[in-house]
Design a protein around this nucleic acid. Structure first.
Lengths: 193, 193
DNA sequence: GACACTGTACCGAATGTTCGGTATAAATGG
DNA sequence: CCATTTATACCGAACATTCGGTACAGTGTC
């Protein structure tokens, strides 16, 4: 076969970008075609299931990302604090310092949430769970760790919403900075939750 | 002239509901028509500017709501704690205990954000400002009050995103419960931010 | 020649929007 | 008090466009 101009991975990356920016309903085939440089037929060659399969491929890509940058760091060497640092750096770059939206958020809002909800559910759950594991490992009580992990994801998501609405990446930067110091704070110190 | 079946206010309320549920692109005229009981052309009688004007009417309605339930309570009698209680109750019911999405969030995600961004910006800003005023009044330092107010809105928005993704209203309930006790905590106590 | 891929043309359905027209109720005028 | 006008509320049907999706005839590589 001719060398593809774009690897499948690269194609999916561009799909992800469009879905993040425009949402599921807003991401028309024309837009997806323009963004990938592929004609309609080529898109349907790679994704016979059409737009829905493209969105699922985008979600696959995100799961892959989470595997790499959230779950794997749990098993890597280093203190919990060091590994948290790496995770937050990865999130910072994933969301372009608060300037780009979250694919999960994009799919949560928008009329086709039900199409993807099982996957959204799973993604959010493993996200929280990975934070939780890290916090527990830092010596925090399991119950507190659990709610602290949820709060962390809540704050990141909320910050992204606010950044989009305010057209200002301040909230995201502040949340991330705070999480860096607050997420692993030890039991004696009650200054964070 | 004929008696209207629905007051304009009632019509807008139903439009709001559809936009919240489906987003701007997802809210088709057929859907808006079905929800209001008005034919497509009748909708254009009320909103000559079409779908965009309908969404703006929805945003007007939200501004009205904020005026009533966020800004007015600032000037009402009662301790800051009492007034905060009322504000959070109002938010709890606005979002149906976490089961319904935020119109602002819905418009932030979705490809037509730029159409509404000035209004989104203003809404988020006054929301934060109203919290801030309440916190300051409770005797908290202005700088801390500011960031605490932002965090509160961040957490509410994030919780709503998570509730949608997880199909579970737990996060919203927990955030609201925490805000009830944490938002006005006095300077000596550093247990919240 | 088999295979992976792509461009073109096309489909039915749905999109947002507009037009022509009807029904009703209040206001107007005698 | 009645007839006529006028303003409003609404609908059905059609508008052009775009939607997601398909059929097919290639093209270029192994």
């Amino acid at each position: 076969m001719p060398t593809p101009l774009l690897s499948r991975e690269a194609v999916v990356d561009r799909l992800v970008a469009v879905f993040r920016r425009l949402g599921y309903e807003g991401a028309s085939l024309s837009e997806l075609s323009k963004a990938t440089g592929l004609g309609r037929s080529s898109l349907y060659h790679y994704f016979p299931g059409g737009k829905e399969e493209m969105a699922n491929a985008a979600l696959d890509r995100l799961s892959e990302w989470m595997e790499t940058y959230l779950l794997t760091p749990l098993k890597k060497p280093g203190t919990p604090a060091e590994r948290l640092e790496r995770v937050l750096d990865a999130l910072d770059s994933l969301y372009a310092q608060g300037k780009e939206a979250c694919l999960l958020g994009t799919l949560v809002y928008g009329g086709s949430r039900n199409l993807f909800q099982p996957r959204l559910q799973e993604s959010f759950a493993t996200w929280i769970a990975s934070f939780e594991a890290l916090i527990v490992e830092a010596g925090v009580d399991a119950t507190i760790a659990r709610q602290r992990a949820e709060t962390a994801v809540v704050r990141i998501q909320g910050a992204l919403t606010l950044c989009g609405g305010l057209d200002d990446d301040g909230p995201f930067k502040r949340v991330l900075a705070d999480l860096r110091t607050a997420l692993l704070a030890v039991p004696g110190d009650v200054s964070h939750r």
